[in-house]
């Protein structure tokens, strides 16, 4: 019943959207709200339904159940298309056209495009304008995609996993370009499975898992809630004995090791050492993303 009248500052929304591909449920009653001027990070592991959500907001998928709205219109409406841009996970555009040619073509689609020189500058492509797309590196290609998404001077920008497959340098370079967007007053929806990326770029993060929204907040809030640690040790203590301890999200046996996921590692270590003097091979590591999401899932129960 959240689908009340949208507030002024809401640019786009999904309300109780369920989407199925045959028997597979990709989105399960998802609510999502994009507010004017923010960078919204949609965070989730691969297969969580991020791309499906973006596709519904772009209108490239039809809504099966629930409602989707962008600028108060249907997501695919022509008046919407001219006001937004998108960077999708695609394997590439024509290798035989130059960067400038691609940009000119996309600029032609929009009534008030950004100047080509400005787009080249924003994407850091000034020196590559005459190069054919096929001759660019992966990072350069993503920057071309970025420039194309900006071609129409969009108010709303969708970036679907923009840094996938890039090395660290290229990723940071693109990050800095995306950060520039916020200053220009644009609204950005960014999907990522990388918490650091969401942290680096987003004002607000929505975490999706198995097609549901499992958490929402500032990156700092999310980070703190996912700041779990994995405590591994060889011990005679069984998982069920630690499961009830404060902060423990999950405990399991893997090989000889007991693995315990917890948000309060110091308390747990203290407790473990107290209960088993013979405990050996103790390590405490940051939880992986899967585990972090797992933690969030438990939290929301």
């Amino acid at each position: 019943m959240q689908a009340g009248p949208q507030q002024d500052h809401t640019l786009a929304s999904l309300s109780r959207v369920t989407h199925r591909y045959g028997p597979v449920v990709a989105l399960d009653g998802l609510d999502l709200e994009v507010r004017r001027g923010e960078v919204l990070g949609v965070l989730g592991p691969n297969g969580a339904g991020k791309t499906t959500a973006i596709s519904l907001l772009l209108g490239s998928l039809g809504v099966q159940e629930g409602a989707a709205s962008v600028f108060g219109c249907a997501p695919g409406a022509p008046e919407v298309r001219v006001r937004r841009g998108a960077m999708l996970q695609i394997s590439g555009i024509s290798a035989n056209l130059t960067v400038r040619e691609h940009i000119e073509l996309f600029r032609a689609y929009y009534p008030a495009p950004l100047p080509a020189a400005r787009l080249l500058a924003m994407a850091g492509l000034e020196d590559l304008a005459q190069r054919r797309y096929g001759k660019l590196s992966g990072g350069q290609k993503q920057r071309v995609m970025f420039a194309l998404a900006l071609a129409g001077d969009p108010e709303l920008l969708f970036l679907d996993e923009p840094t996938t497959g890039l090395d660290v340098d290229a990723r940071h370079r693109l990050w800095s370009e995306i950060r520039g967007l916020r200053e220009s007053g644009r609204t950005t929806v960014l999907t990522t499975h990388n918490l650091d990326e969401a942290d680096a770029l987003a004002d607000r993060v929505v975490v999706i898992h198995n097609g549901r929204r499992i958490a929402e907040g500032t990156p700092a809030e999310i980070k703190s809630r996912t700041a779990g640690r994995l405590v591994r040790c060889v011990t005679r203590i069984r998982p069920d004995e630690v499961a009830g301890l404060p902060g423990v999200v999950e405990a399991r046996t893997r090989g000889r090791h007991l693995e315990t996921l917890t948000t309060q590692p110091e308390d747990l270590v203290r407790e473990l050492l107290a209960r088993d003097e013979a405990l050996a091979d103790l390590t405490v590591v940051a939880a992986g993303l899967e585990d972090a999401f797992l933690a969030l899932t438990r939290d929301t129960k």
Binding site: L58, G59, S60, P78, R81, V82, R84, G85, A86, L88, Q89, I90, S91, G92, I93, S94, F106, Y109, Y110, L148, G152
Partner: peptide, 14 residues
């Protein structure tokens, strides 16, 4: 269709 160019262009006002 395979590379996704078509999908990308479908999101534009083309």
């Amino acid at each position: 269709r395979d590379t996704g160019v078509l999908l990308l262009k479908q999101t534009t006002p083309m």
